[in-house]
Write a protein that binds this DNA or RNA. Structure first.
Lengths: 245, 245
DNA sequence: CGCGACTTTGAACTGAATCAATTTTGGTGG
DNA sequence: CCACCAAAATTGATTCAGTTCAAAGTCGCG
């Protein structure tokens, strides 16, 4: 098999872009798509495992992820980037790496800013993305802070499934999810071994499986219960026990 | 002592606002400050422990924090809000609560949006805030994912100290930090008892203390070492051990 | 076939949670 | 100024979820 088999080229024109309905430029009406051509500063195809150095781009095909290294040689995965996502390699020390063979559309920050200055709708779309990112980070934070291993895995799987569903990349039973267990572990603050055990528990209980790049959800309710802290106590006992004021 | 002693009223005019140099409107030149008057939709003074229901506002005096409850009755503190911070009570389920007696300036989202549409500089300032928030959440995520208790505490103390320094609310030796140990614990995914022990270790080693609403940094280098994963292995061993590609 | 990447399993170990008091602090009202 | 109470901080003992270390087992592929 050719070493390029999985590299999906981008269409020449934004008008034909399959991910635009879910991407930054979703707010630009079809009739005006021609105007955004100058914001594109190029496309790139990268292989799984390659570092991505471009500073701002829209994922077209494949998955990427942002991460930071800890001085003791481990990783924290900060976020996963799916087709349609706008990704910025930020000032902070985060690296971006292709998780699968990927292709994306590189933007000119300067021209994007100029365009947003003229088009408040586009600026809003950009702000939307930032706000969503922040909300996702907050959920992730809650996971790492207060969920156990099974809950973290369940929550992340549901998050990814939801994101994929919204862009038509999944159905209710499952989706293509090319994560290795090491990605899960590094995103969730777990050791690979423990991520494996959590996944094994899900499998054994007939809740969900992650295998050969595919997520299968067999019992969504059970998965949601795990992610939402299974045995909910009765509502009247919901009062926080710390910081009670 | 009067029950209102700690409620700091806001100045009548934005021109006299002490936190504007660090806030959303920092980009509006003094000469044009009059124009933003209509964006303010009110001010509010709240007591420590009160929930804040306003949807978008700038902290003027005091601290607040955002949090979510877990169904099992615990809390995850998502972020702390300091004077000058723009706070949005977001669509997501996060609550905002005053940590100390606080006062803030409520904005009209509608008029703010309209103004940003006309003033790209202000829009940029807003985007800046969101980007900073996201970066802070990412750092926090890394803390919860990969740092031990001492490292998490050290990192959060340094983050807060840095934020306070930038707005002139601290000197190199310390700052007013009104957090209870329960806030630390709930922000860092620790039990109160363990947060206490981590803090006790910092104190015993002469690194830093948090006491009666005051942070004292006695050995900044040691604190940074803790936050940055103390015993750094030699640079050549920095290669990540998981996800190696 | 054989190698490397990934997954799985087991056992020992440990950081942090939990449970259970006890002490300290700050504020309140006399 | 002092006695008192609730909130907050502290300490100790025990338990447990998750890490670490060590080996196999499995899969895709050249």
């Amino acid at each position: 098999m050719s070493r390029n088999a999985n590299l999906t080229p981008l269409p020449g024109s934004c008008a034909a872009c399959a991910v635009r309905p879910f991407a930054l430029f979703r707010v630009i009406p079809q009739a005006r798509v021609g105007e955004i051509a100058r914001i594109r500063s190029g496309v790139r195809l990268v292989r799984a495992g390659d570092a991505i150095l471009d500073s701002i781009f829209t994922m077209y095909a494949g998955w990427a992820f942002s991460w930071t290294a800890t001085p003791d040689g481990r990783r924290q995965v900060l976020d996963f980037h799916l087709p349609g996502d706008l990704v910025e390699r930020s000032e902070d020390a985060a690296e971006v790496e292709a998780l699968t063979d990927s292709s994306f559309c590189i933007l000119s920050r300067e021209r994007l800013c100029a365009f947003m200055g003229r088009d408040p709708g586009l600026a809003m779309s950009y702000v939307d993305g930032l706000t969503r990112d922040r909300a996702r980070m907050r959920e992730r934070l809650t996971s790492l802070g207060r969920r156990d291993a099974a809950g973290r895995v369940a929550h992340l799987l549901l998050e990814l499934h939801g994101r994929l569903l919204r862009r038509g990349g999944a159905d209710a039973r499952g989706a293509a999810v090319p994560l290795k267990q090491a990605h899960l572990a590094d995103a969730l603050g777990l050791s690979v071994e423990h991520a494996n055990r959590a996944l094994a528990a899900l499998r054994k209980d007939g809740v969900a499986t992650l295998n050969k790049g595919r997520l299968e959800i067999m019992d969504r309710t059970a998965l949601e219960d795990l992610a939402g802290w299974a045995g909910l106590p009765p509502p009247e006992s919901l009062a926080p026990q710390t910081l009670a004021g």
